[in-house]
Structure formats: C-alpha cells, structure tokens
Design a protein around this nucleic acid. Structure first.
Lengths: 389, 389
DNA sequence: ATTAGTTTGTTTATTCGATAAACTAATTGT
DNA sequence: ACAATTAGTTTATCGAATAAACAAACTAAT
C-alpha cells in the first residue's frame, strides 16, 4: 500500500519548488517561500539540491525591494532536450524542445500513402529521430526522452499500440522498438491525450485544473485533464468519444454501429457534406478551410454543420464532466469562428446546467503542434511531476 | 499551496490504518503492519491514538499462529450514529446507521403530492429527523452527522439546492436550515452522487477504483468514482447525463432541446411506451415492474426498449471514462435481467474499445437504499477520509 | 557620511513522525 | 523443559520541516 513517509514529503515539496520556478521564473528563494507557504530554510535547502542537479540555475541579482537584492532563479533550459513526435495518418511531425518546452528544432515529413506498412513507417520514424539526435545541441543530460502521440488505441504503461485503424496497424510494440534502437526512454500515448497534456503545459489549458481537449480531425478523440493530471481511465482507454452515439438510428459507421459522432463532426463528415452539396472531391481539409475563410458559401455551411454536431458531442461531455474549459484541437478548429461560433452556440444550448456555471470553449493554442508538444510534455512531466497550481 | 509536512504523513498513515481495520476487521496490529507495509511500531502508535479516540476497539485475543496470540482490533461501531436521507420526489427514505454503516433504524414516508411546497416538505423532513434523534441509542459521540441526497442540482460545498425540477424547488439553503435546527453537521449531495458513494462503501463498488453509478429512475443521473473518490467536476455539477443527446432530432424534451437520454431511458420513457402500446396509464413504476416479471409481454418489451436506450447512454459514458464497472441503480434495474440483458448487449455493441477491456455492468446491490446509504457515507467518509484499496 | 529599517538568504536548535533493533510477552511443538 | 515462533512495546536514530537568530546587502532618511 502507498504509505507516507519523509521521503514523500520531500518529493512533494521539491516538486512544488521546481514547478513554482518553472511557472514564475525568474523568482527568488524568498518569493518561492512566500507563494508556496514553505519555510525560507526549507526552500533554500531544496533549491540547493535542484542547483546541484542542474535542473535550476542562478541568474544573478534582481531588483531590490528596499533591502538586499534577491537572487533570481530559473529553470536550466539546457539541462537536456526532449523529442516529441506526432505520428499522423499522412505525415510525421517531429520537434525537439529544451527543458522549458521551447521548440529548438522541427521537421515535418509528408507521406503520400496513408497505409504504409508499419515496418516502412517505423523505419522513416527512426531515420527522423536519428537526424534529430545528431543535430541536437550538447546539454548536460543529452536527450532526456522521446514522446510519441499516435492516432489510435494505446497501452501507455506497456508502450504498445493496440490498434490504429487509420494507419491500418495492430499490436505494434513501438516503445520497445524505439527504446532498443536508441537507448532513450520512450513514452507512447494516444494523440488526443498528448494534445491535452500539451495544452496543459504550454497552451490554452495552463491555468485550468479540469478540462477536456477535443481532437477533431480525421477522427475524434478526447484527452481528459482532471485535477491537473491526465485521466487515462481504468485501462488507459478513456476519451474514445468518436464513437459516442448522437443519433440512435443515424448514419452507419465503419465500427459497425450507427449514429457515431465521427460521422457527424469529423473531417469525414465534412468531406461527405462537400461531396453532397458541392459535388467536389479531391480537396484536402486545408483546401476546404482556406475556401471557407475566403468566403465560399458551401464550405462555410459545411463547417457550420459540423460545428453544430461537434457542439452536441461537446455538450454531452460537459454534462458528464463539468469541466472549466473545453479546448478544440486538431485540424477542424483551424477554420476559426466559422466552426467555433456554431459549436459554442449548440454546446451552450444543450448544456443542462449552463445556468449554474460557465464553460469556456476555446480553440487550441498550439494548433497542429499540440500533439507533438504534448508528446514532449509526457517526458518533461516525468521530471516535474504534475504541475500543481 | 498544499505543501507536505509530517502532519500530512501522519494523517495519511492513520487513515490507512483505520481503513484497513474497517475493511479487514477483525485484524491484529501485526497483520496491519504486514498488509500496509508500515512498521510495527508505527502501527502500534497509530492504533493507540485510534483507541483513545474510541474509533477502534480491542476485541480480545485471536487464534495463535504458532506464537503469542494476536489482539483483534475492530471498528467501534457504537462510536456514533449517522442519519442518511433520500429525499425522493414522492417519498422520504430515512435511515440511521452505526459507524460501520449497518442500518439500525429505517423509516419511509410516502407523500401523495409530488409538488409539495419546500416549506411543508422540509417541515416533514425535520419531524422525521427529530424522531430519529430521540430514538437513537446512546453512543460516544451521539449523532455524528446528517447526509441528504436530493434529486437535483446541488452545490455541495455550500449545501445548497440550486434546482430540483421534479420537486419544483429552486435555491433552497437546505444545509443551513437543518444545521441550525439540530446543531449537527449536514452534507447535501445530488442523488446520483450519493448513490455512487453508497455503492462504493457498502455495495457493488467496494472493490472498484473507478466506476460509474447510473441512477435510472424518474430522471437519469450519474455518480462518478475516480481514484476511489467521488468526482464532482469543476463546479460540482458532473454526471448530469439525463440530457445527453442520443438522437440529434429526437423526441422534444422539457429542457427545451430534443433527443435527450431521459426521453428514451427513464421512467418517463417507460410510461410513454406503456401508454402508446398498452394504452394504460395510472400505473406506478412498481406495477409495471411486477407485471414485467410476471410475464406481461408489453411491459417486458417496454423494459427491453428502455434497456437498449439506456445501454446506448452507458456505452457513451464507457467510451469517455473507461471505467472498470458500471452500476445501474434506482428504480429501473429492480426489474432485473429483462432490463439488464438488453442494456448489456447494447452497451457492449457500442463500446468502441470493448475488444481491449471488459466492463462489468451490474445492478445496484443496495437497490432503493443506495441513495440514503450513500448520504450516510458522505458523513462517514469524512471520518475515514477516502477508502484506499 | 551615518544610521535605522528592510529584505534576502543562511545557520542553528528543536520538533515530530517513521523506522530498525532490541526487547518483553505469550504461545506451540517436541 | 525449552527452542522456535509470533505479537506487541520500548529505545535510539534518522531525516524532514520549522522557528528563531543571524549575517549580508541594500534603501532612505537624517
């Protein structure tokens, strides 16, 4: 059983200090003591340890507040680099960040055929990672870890892709493959979970304790942040909302059921709408977005329809979770208010307790970087523990 | 900020010891040390405190295991009594339990008119509480607290009923009313939340860390247990699933929208079905249950239909939460497998990741007592902290 | 320039909880 | 009778946070 002792106490307080420095840098020891409630001497001792671990740096003296000048502390951004990868359906987006989550290298490769064999795709991935590693700047700890966000069902503990229908993959032991090749810790998570943790650390969710990140792209998924942490459910399969039923006897879905949200509120639904009302195919999602923004009526209507349907799905989740905030990410929200206004209207209308609380519904702040940055945050969060507000 | 210190350490460990005694009673100090991993002397010290607080009792020697005989420890059931109340739409169910959650007194009063004025209803409630208090056995601490489960939207922190549509109540400061009258701590929660915590402490959810309790009666609500604790959401309004949209352009609902789950899977839906296919009205839910069990074909079909619809709602939640377990409570599951079989079939069919994990879907173990016992558990859990497995 | 007051950060002594080790107590099996 | 075993207590120690005293560095008023 998980009993408590002094080791736990120190762990908790040390992480509180580190998180405080991360969030409020530059900050002095005295200020840390003030905002955390820890004793000055406790803060000094913990900061000393963080300094010897090189996670934190002294940055010289700050402005005097009418007495001795404070010593500014900051995160040591150069303690190590992190690789974050968004394994998309027809692209791989790879970024390298420093310890503060600042992107210092980025590369996107587009892939023609969506259904590469796992072998070919993983070879591409490994080449990309190798390229990043050799070009990485020298740091204290080198590459700390690799995070990968995958569009599919993932076993996070085992680093296993159980199923990625849009890639045509089943049962891929991705973690052990990458770890064995590079000897660096690897974390694999679902694309929506990664997006959620990305927004929590670096995006629109920084200040929210409980929020939902809705990834609306080829498919629909949700990442759930509860009490400042990703909620993975009992077997790590939470947030599979793409196949939430929103229409009892609705459009048949590839999953074998009917009326799934994905048939109404994803790229798939958008393409169907365009095909039906504009008789156009062969457009990419980005074409349609550009057209809608440029004023094309059918494209706008298509996004309004999809926004309305997504609003229904969002309302269902708000009713269940009562979050402070819902962040809409992935490709669809790139179109902006055309989608978001309808979505907000419908969600508010169908939110039962909207009289008694307000939910902010915001587009992603990281846009198409949410997943890759979240993948990096999976690694970073291991060092910080959870970012306590 | 919530920093850690030795006080916290002791609190945690003491609650671990108390919970272990609660769950495994009778148990010796040595055994507690073994199962918790705490040191023998730590356990002895903490048990001593619990003994002087009279929360725990020594029950004499147990069987020797080949050495000195152990001293059996148990919860002191008589340390105090707890009142738990289910404030139903047309009844009040009131129970008194001892510290172990065993019911020692129970009374149900049925009320003709659903829409009593709050004043009249609260007067009834106070009379009932008074009756319980005078008839209570003498204990160390008397009545420890009063828990009340309410069918509506509740602010738990403030003990405030924001809205109870089925009672026709708005903005009732129930906690302060009852606390001022009796001078005993009062806890108010939503009926589904109370049901969930009841099943967690005393029913089908004892061994599950994450589960959903679905209250399917006049309305539909959910209580969400995450990490062994009730998840209330950001403003305490989680689990309002009655107005989850399951049919985009479905049956109009009193909430102003259309296609809400409540129109398909509650008593309301059952009555509508019976009216339409059997042309009978004036039946209570219990009449229909009895008829269905007795073999009446239309009643059975009605439950099968409602079960299927409820299964869709349950599948939506399973997809979002990935719980270990879903417990179906309140009136509808009293009919048994007629409902549950259809519900399970449909839920399994629509659960996207069902290939990768199994969810148990069980009827409530506490049946119509879930809410009242959960209301009592709201009080008890304050003394135990959360029951850590 | 002097001095009082303030702010920052360190040092020292104290407290408190968990723990290991040594102990007492009680029981079984041979 | 006595060795082995199990239950529970006592004692000494460790290590974390803390308060209080201190030293250092600065501002501002005189």
């Amino acid at each position: 059983m998980k009993t408590a002792d002094q080791v736990l106490v120190k762990q908790i307080n040390k992480m509180i200090v580190l998180n405080t420095i991360y969030k409020k840098r530059p900050i002095s020891r005295a200020e840390i003591a003030k905002v955390t409630g820890l004793n000055k001497s406790t803060v000094s001792a913990l900061v000393d340890e963080l300094l010897t671990e090189e996670l934190v740096l002294e940055m010289g003296a700050g402005e005097s507040q009418g007495g001795r000048r404070p010593v500014n502390l900051s995160i040591n951004k150069e303690v190590g680099n992190i690789i974050g990868i968004d394994l998309g359906v027809n692209y791989i987006l790879s970024i390298m960040t420093n310890f503060a989550g600042e992107i210092i290298w980025e590369k996107r490769i587009d892939l023609q055929h969506a259904h590469n064999s796992p072998g070919q795709r993983i070879a591409d991935l490994q080449t990309l990672i190798e390229e990043m590693i050799v070009s990485a700047s020298q740091t204290v700890r080198g590459i700390i870890g690799i995070g990968i966000g995958v569009p599919g069902i993932v076993n996070y503990e085992q680093g296993l892709i159980l199923s990625a229908p849009n890639l045509g993959w089943e049962n891929i032991e991705l973690r052990s493959m990458i770890e064995q090749k590079f000897g660096i810790p690897v974390f694999i998570d679902n694309e929506a979970n990664a997006g959620a943790i990305g927004e929590k650390w670096f995006g629109a969710g920084k200040r929210a304790d409980e929020f939902l990140y809705i990834s609306a792209g080829t498919g629909i998924g949700a990442g759930i942040i509860i009490n400042n942490e990703l909620y993975r459910g009992s077997k790590g399969l939470s947030g599979e909302i793409g196949h939430m039923t929103v229409s009892l006897d609705g459009i048949p879905c590839s999953c074998g059921n009917a009326g799934c949200l994905e048939e109404y509120a994803s790229e798939k639904a958008l393409f169907r709408y365009m095909k039906e009302y504009a008789c156009v195919e062969e457009l990419t999602i980005f074409n349609i977005i550009d057209n809608a923004i440029a004023g094309d009526e059918v494209s706008r209507k298509a996004f309004e329809y999809v926004g309305k349907c997504l609003g229904i799905g969002v309302a269902n989740l708000i009713n269940a979770f009562n979050p402070q905030l819902v962040i809409i990410g992935n490709s669809l929200p790139l179109v902006g208010d055309i989608l978001m206004n309808e979505l907000r209207r419908e969600a508010e209308k169908r939110c039962f307790a909207s009289k008694y609380f307000s939910v902010k519904i915001l587009p992603s702040q990281l846009n198409m970087h949410a997943c890759a940055m979240g993948a990096a945050a999976l690694v970073i969060s291991r060092l910080y523990a959870s970012p306590v507000s």
